[in-house]
Simulated assay, not measured.
Amino acid sequence: MIHYTIRLYDRIPVLVRLSFIITLILFFFAFLLHYLEPETFPTFFEAVWWAIVTSTTVGYGDFVPTSTLGRLAGMVLILFGIGFVLFFVQNLASATVDEKRHWQKGTISSSFNNHYIIVNWNERSRQFIEQIQRAYPERSTVLIDNTLSDSPFYNSNSLQFIKGNPSFQDTLKKANIRKARALIITAELKETEQSADAQSILTLLTAKHYCDDIYITVEILTSEQLPNARHAGADEIIASNIISSLLMTESLEQQGIAETITLLLDVEATPFLRSIPCPEEWIGNTFQEISTQARKDAKLLLGISKNGQTTLNPEESTVIHEDDSIFLLDSSR
């Protein structure tokens, strides 16, 4: 029992142990003075007040022991105060500095809830974080990167950096992935495209194995790896090279289309593109019927997604089911 108590005590943080010892000493001397001089310290609270101001060497002088034993106890308390209290303050300051340094180095586990996790630090992830902060300032974001030596974020309570390999479960655990809203894996462009895709899929597999219900969007650079990303469990795949090539091809013949697509995807633009689950009142109606209803609310329906297959501008007689997703332009936020 004694050995168990000692091991338990050793696991307690130093600041907690110091707080416990200081409180114990203060209450002991408060009780002692209240017992030795009940006339000077008629209540235990007044004795505690005296113990605190004495141990911190403030010494207001509103309560002063008059007996020899009381003064000896006060002298001992002052010595304890100089030692323990100052040591506590020094450790508190040191712990604060250490925590800030560990936060900057990315070694502290995240306590965020309902947050985004983004893998790899690059221009795309930087812009993603900026857009999230502008459009959804209440959202927190955790960045996982193994190349940075210090956090790229400063003086922000909603952004945190975790240093580590994102394909390791310990790193994902530090990012609190089980409490996260979604995980976004961006391609590491310092490697070849094939190697970057392989690393992204490995991270995807690790994340799905550790937390199978997390929604994951992964960036894939090569078309050959698109089926592998789907088999690995990606909820959504961003084929950035294919998207870029499509935009460049169409922009040659249809001037302004690239700017239009960018505007539709801008989280701060109006109207903005949305994907929503089918509202209950739309179930069983045709696409033409719900389009008419949507226009009354300043919404323009573009298409539906059935069983993972997206159809833009479907036939007007297409019936909407409960599991369908609706794509629309929304003018209200």
Score class of each variant (00 low, 15 high):
T311W: 01
T217V: 15
T23Y: 05
A232T: 05
G61W: 07
R126H: 10
S240E: 09
Y116G: 07
Y215C: 04
L246P: 00
E259L: 09
L32K: 08
A182C: 11
V16A: 15
T40V: 15
Q199F: 11
D297W: 04
T262E: 14
S125D: 02
K299F: 02
Q133M: 01
I162N: 06
S200H: 04
S111M: 08
D324A: 05
L33N: 14
S331Y: 15
L300Y: 13
T286Q: 12
A269K: 05
P65E: 10
G308E: 10
N157H: 07
G81W: 04
Y4T: 14
H115N: 11
A258W: 02
S275K: 13
A93Y: 11
V64F: 08
I6W: 12
S167L: 02
I184L: 15
Y154S: 13
I129P: 02
I108R: 15
E250V: 05
V218Y: 05
V97Q: 13
G308H: 12
K296D: 10
L26K: 01
L247Q: 11
D297T: 12
S158L: 06
R333K: 15
E253K: 08
L33A: 04
I12A: 06
L15Q: 14
E280M: 08
A187C: 08
E99K: 15
Y136E: 03
G303C: 06
F168H: 14
G233M: 05
T40N: 11
C278R: 02
I261Y: 13
A196V: 07
D197S: 07
S240T: 15
F80G: 02
A93P: 00
H231R: 11
F45H: 08
Q309L: 12
V267T: 07
D98T: 12
E322V: 05
D235W: 02
Q199Y: 12
F27M: 12
T203Q: 08
L36Y: 06
Q169P: 00
E138T: 11
Q309G: 00
Q169W: 00
L77N: 06
V218R: 04
S140R: 15
R181V: 00
Q293D: 11
